[in-house]
Structure formats: structure tokens, C-alpha cells
């Protein structure tokens, strides 16, 4: 859904068109990626190790380790996309002369999203590090 902010007397005559779904993705993309990472990593570690997949080796690594690395790459990828999108959005909003409160609120959401996406990407990386200690076992 596109939204503009006709209620405010902006500096510019034409309000900036903003895709609301994109704003929500920017705001929550990194957090969603982290949630996905934690839940999938937990499921793979708990269910994979107990079901014996930790004993199956492929290319020198356990199946569980491969799956965990895959999950981590997926989650980090989503967080990365969220960072890129929020960065581009942030630059776009900065380039446009943001005037009304509606646009400033959007700019704030984007800035908030940018910071939190970077932090969540960091959390995903921190949580991935222990996997490298368990590449050949559970």
C-alpha cells in the first residue's frame, strides 16, 4: 500500500511516496531473520543431534553442521538484504528534503531499522561462531 502525508504542510509541494510494506520489512527484517535463525538452528541442533545426523559425515563435516551453516547463511542473507534495503531507503530519504512529520517518522523508522538490522546481523554471526567448534560432532 502506498501512502502519502497530505495532512502536513511540507517543504516540498509533492509528498514522498513510500511503500509501507517496505518500511515494515526495513523495521523488522533483521529481527525476523534472527528469529528464524534461532528457531531453525535450535531445531536442527536438538532434533538433528538426537536423531543421529551428527554421526553422518559429508565432506568431512557432520550433516548437522552443514544444515546449521546453511541456516546461518540463509538468516544472515535475509538480514543482509534488510541492511541493504534500509541503507538505500535511508539514503533516498536523506536525499529528498524530508519536511512533514509523516516523512520524518518514516525516516526515523528506517534509521531504527538500519541500526537494528546491523545489530541482528551481528547477533546471527555471534551465534554462528560456536558451530565451528562442533563441525565434526554434536
Amino acid at each position: 500500500m502506498d501512502a502519502s502525508y497530505p495532512g502536513s504542510s511540507d517543504v516540498r509541494s509533492e509528498p514522498l511516496q513510500v511503500n509501507r510494506a517496505l518500511v515494515w520489512f526495513v523495521l523488522l527484517g533483521g529481527a525476523t531473520a534472527w528469529t528464524l535463525h534461532l528457531l531453525l538452528a535450535y531445531a536442527v541442533a536438538e532434533f538433528g543431534c538426537l536423531s543421529g545426523m551428527g554421526e553422518t559425515q559429508v565432506g568431512g563435516l557432520t550433516l548437522v553442521a552443514w544444515m546449521l551453516l546453511g541456516v546461518s547463511v540463509l538468516a544472515a542473507g535475509i538480514a543482509g538484504v534488510a541492511i541493504v534495503v534500509s541503507l538505500r531507503f535511508h539514503r533516498r530519504l536523506r536525499a529528498a528534503e524530508v519536511g512533514g512529520e509523516g516523512e520524518r517518522a518514516t525516516a526515523f523508522s528506517v534509521r531504527l531499522g538500519l541500526i537494528s538490522n546491523v545489530v541482528f546481523a551481528g547477533v546471527i554471526i555471534v551465534q554462528t561462531i560456536p558451530i565451528f567448534y562442533y563441525l565434526r560432532e554434536c
Binding site: Y42, A45, E46, C49, P130, I131
Partner: peptide, 14 residues
């Protein structure tokens, strides 16, 4: 499983 615990230690520290 220790592997599972390691994620939660990391999250706890974060």
C-alpha cells in the same frame, strides 16, 4: 546437546 547450548550462551551474552 552441547551444540544447542552454545547458541543460547551466545544469545544470553548478546
Amino acid at each position: 546437546p552441547e551444540l544447542g547450548l552454545s547458541f543460547f550462551t551466545a544469545a544470553s551474552l548478546m
